[in-house]
Design a protein around this nucleic acid. Sequence first.
DNA 1: TGCAATACATCATATTATGATGTATTATTG
DNA 2: CAATAATACATCATAATATGATGTATTGCA
Lengths: 113, 113
Amino acid sequence: MYSRELLKGILKPIILKLLSEHDKMYGYEIVQHVKEKTEGKVLIKEGSLYPTLHSLTKEGYLTTESVLVGNRTRKYYSLTKEGTGLVVPALNELIDFQATLGLLFGKEKPAVS
Amino acid sequence: MYSRELLKGILKPIILKLLSEHDKMYGYEIVQHVKEKTEGKVLIKEGSLYPTLHSLTKEGYLTTESVLVGNRTRKYYSLTKEGTGLVVPALNELIDFQATLGLLFGKEKPAVS
DNA sequence: TGCAATACATCATATTATGATGTATTATTG
DNA sequence: CAATAATACATCATAATATGATGTATTGCA
């Protein structure tokens, strides 16, 4: 059975994948990136993102680095060694999940004739 | 943005799709069917299924019919007209969601080099 | 006879995305 | 130049829902 986490949330895998490709990103950047990549179809809300980033950090998968740009603070997040180790399993599980969705919702039998 | 329902649950779409293909099914049958179809990867729990069936019924998307088999009751569920109208939109949204997952987790840039 | 499978159900709990709200800076536009 | 939008962080109450635990009862099989 798929983990409850996977069935409920794709936010952590998204963050892990992005950080595996980008070395370091800050919250607002993640939101914009996902928005563009998904053609505006996935809009991560601050209320979802920041708690998730904090929890991943607390769990030891991310480290932070605050940078002052002008007078505005930017908090960069990057993968720890542990976080890096999490990327591939998380993606594999998601990919497998997609395939399973295919089994369930594949086109062998059309929903409506 | 995808509905919260979709992001959180695939159970309702599963039920709708199955009932659109099977005319009438009972709870235990749904569990077994999904288990077989997904090679044991999606195991619907009774604690998830029955409340969902009840809520779909309450919302007018399903009707029930109790049948006595031996001394054991079987409660068959089938789609109402409203429920049938729900099938295609629900599946389309899910299929679109799968495609969007592809945008996010596609293989253009491998997660690990 | 006892265990697994069949078949229904409810309820407390845990998880987590969202919306609301807050603060503050910077850029744009009328 | 003033107002607005965008940038950038954050917290908290709420809502939604899958799960695990628990319960009842029948049926089939070893």
